[in-house]
Simulated assay, not measured.
Amino acid sequence: MMHSNDYDITFGPSFISDKSTNLYTYACHETERELCLMELTELFGHEPDGEDWLESEQWVDPDRSPFLSACIDVRMTGESIEEMAEQAGSIHLNNASFKVVCLKAGDRFSYEQSRGYERVVGRQITGIAQMKAPDVTLGMISTGGIWRLGLLHEPERAWLKHKQKPQNYSTGLSSRIARALVNLAVPRLSEVTLLDPCCGMGNVLIEAFSMGIAAEGRDINPLAIRGARVNLRHYGYDDNKVAIQDMNTLQGHYDAAILDLPYNLCSVFPEEEKLQMLQSLRRLSDRAVIVSTEPLREQLMSTGWKVLRHCTTHKGSFVRDIWLCE
């Protein structure tokens, strides 16, 4: 499949060559908004600029985050739609077909207004207008009265297939939350190693592997490891990356770890076991994302962890605390 960048596109004198920028849009359910903002802040190094958009010179594949909905590789800016249309006259797509999409983010417009703006800009572009399956899709957005126009990248969201696992817990991490946790633990995709010492059915591992991250999973529960292996094989990943082991006896060191502390809705998780797991995690990794269903700040501090960020997610009355620590 060819992408917009594969075609011969001329942007004329308005092309921004000295300082490239990307405009990202994002969306989330209110129950996961804290996690969304926390994840995007780690990925981009700063908090989002608006309620549903952020601007960055840094490129992040919109498929990485479960919350990113689009990215515009900004080539032109203007203070009015008329100025935007005038600049669009310098875009020459030669024999490529195209369409212009006004994103539903930033400054809000009615459906009729958005379609009208698309036509105003699209009429000035040299190319073959085509709404269905065009060769090139151009995105535009207005934020605070400033318009931006450029190549539009939309996520394929292949990770959504991970929702239908052969094996799963009813209270297990969703593929969306698991993916966000991996991005918190490993915001930069370099040569890093990731540990999930209580991996359960492998939800976190599947998201990590799908992003090309070297990860390993352990769990003390044989049934969980059996289920994890089934899930990993289902998606074509190496099922030898998981093994039965108590994290307190695990040796070695990893760049990052994600620990979803065990919980039981019918009994209390012993405090001594919790502290021992946090101490073992401190020995195994310098950076960690820790998930709990109970307050944890004092225990984290007493076991040598520094809390960088904290948020909560909700699913009905079930609340998860998420701690990013080093």
Rank of each mutant, 00 (worst) to 15 (best):
H3A: 13
H3N: 12
Y7K: 10
T10Y: 14
P13A: 12
D18N: 12
D18F: 10
N22I: 00
Y24G: 01
T25I: 10
L35Y: 04
E39N: 09
L40G: 08
F44A: 00
H46P: 02
W53M: 05
W53V: 10
E55N: 04
Q58S: 09
A70I: 00
I72T: 06
V74P: 01
M84N: 03
A85F: 09
Q87L: 10
Q87Y: 10
A88S: 14
I91H: 12
S97K: 11
K104Q: 10
A105V: 08
D107C: 04
R108T: 12
S110A: 04
Y111Q: 13
E112A: 14
Q113S: 05
E118R: 13
V121W: 02
A133E: 13
D135Y: 07
T137G: 05
I141Y: 00
T143G: 01
G150P: 00
G150V: 01
H153T: 07
L160R: 15
K165S: 02
Q167V: 11
N168D: 08
S170T: 13
L173M: 05
A178F: 02
V182F: 04
L184P: 03
L184C: 11
V186T: 05
L195Y: 03
L195C: 02
M201V: 07
G202W: 00
N203Q: 10
M211Y: 01
A214K: 15
A215N: 08
G217S: 00
G217H: 09
G217W: 02
N221F: 00
I225Y: 06
R229M: 11
R229N: 06
N231P: 06
L232N: 01
L232V: 11
R233T: 14
D238I: 07
V242Q: 03
I244D: 03
M247G: 04
M247I: 01
A256E: 02
A256F: 05
D260V: 10
P262S: 13
P262W: 05
Y263V: 13
C266T: 15
S267R: 15
Q276R: 09
M277I: 04
M277F: 07
Q279F: 02
R282Q: 15
R282Y: 14
D286R: 15
R287H: 15
A288E: 03
T293W: 08
R297G: 00
S302A: 15
G304K: 13
V307C: 14
L308A: 13
L308T: 06
R309L: 05
H314Y: 07
G316Y: 14
I322S: 09
I322G: 05
